[in-house]
Simulated scan of single mutants.
Amino acid sequence: MTQAIVELLAKDLDGNGGVHCPNPKADMKLWSSHPRVYLDIAHQGQAQCPYCGTVYQLKAGEVIHGGH
């Protein structure tokens, strides 16, 4: 099975440098596929959802401004 990879722009991240999964950008059939979980993207540039395995990663060349 192939993992879904969702590329994000810096503007897609919330004020804390993360996103929630399920996420509309992941093009999931049901928004309630699993409980909503926060994923921190800012620190490592990517994170994987522990429920569905979707990988959210910062698009190449994107820079996160401000934050921590």
Rank of each mutant, 00 (worst) to 15 (best):
C21S: 10
T54G: 03
W31C: 02
C21I: 03
H20T: 05
S32G: 15
D40G: 02
S32E: 15
Q48E: 14
L9I: 03
C21W: 00
W31Q: 00
R36H: 00
A4L: 09
Q57N: 11
L30M: 14
H65I: 05
H65P: 06
Y38H: 02
G15Y: 11
C52E: 08
Q48L: 04
Q46P: 03
V6Y: 02
I41S: 00
G18H: 09
D12M: 05
G17V: 04
L8C: 03
A47M: 11
Y38V: 03
Q48V: 13
I5V: 15
P22D: 04
G17Y: 07
M1R: 06
G61R: 07
Q3M: 04
G17N: 00
P50F: 07
V37Q: 12
G67S: 13
A47P: 12
E62I: 06
G53D: 08
E7R: 09
C21T: 01
G18M: 09
D40W: 09
W31P: 10
L13Y: 09
M28H: 03
N16K: 00
Q57K: 15
G17I: 05
H68P: 13
S33C: 13
A26W: 12
V37Y: 02
Q57Y: 01
L39T: 07
N23W: 05
T2R: 01
Y38T: 04
D40L: 11
R36K: 15
D12E: 06
K25P: 10
D40T: 08
T2H: 09
H20Y: 15
L58R: 07
A4H: 04
Y51A: 14
I41L: 08
A60T: 15
H68W: 10
A10C: 13
Y51E: 15
P35G: 04
Y56R: 06
D27M: 01
P24I: 03
H20I: 08
G61F: 01
P35V: 11
I41F: 00
H43E: 14
G17M: 05
D14W: 06
Q3R: 03
M1T: 01
A26C: 14
Q46R: 11
H65F: 10
P22A: 05
Y56W: 12
D12G: 06
C52K: 04
A60G: 04
A4Y: 00
H65D: 06
M1C: 00
D12H: 14
G45P: 11
R36Q: 13
A42W: 05
Q48S: 15
H20E: 04
Y38M: 02
V19F: 01
C49I: 05
G53Y: 11
H34T: 03
L58F: 08
T2D: 00
A26R: 08
S33K: 13
V6T: 12
G67Y: 06
H65C: 10
T54L: 10
V19R: 06
V63I: 14
L58G: 02
C52W: 01
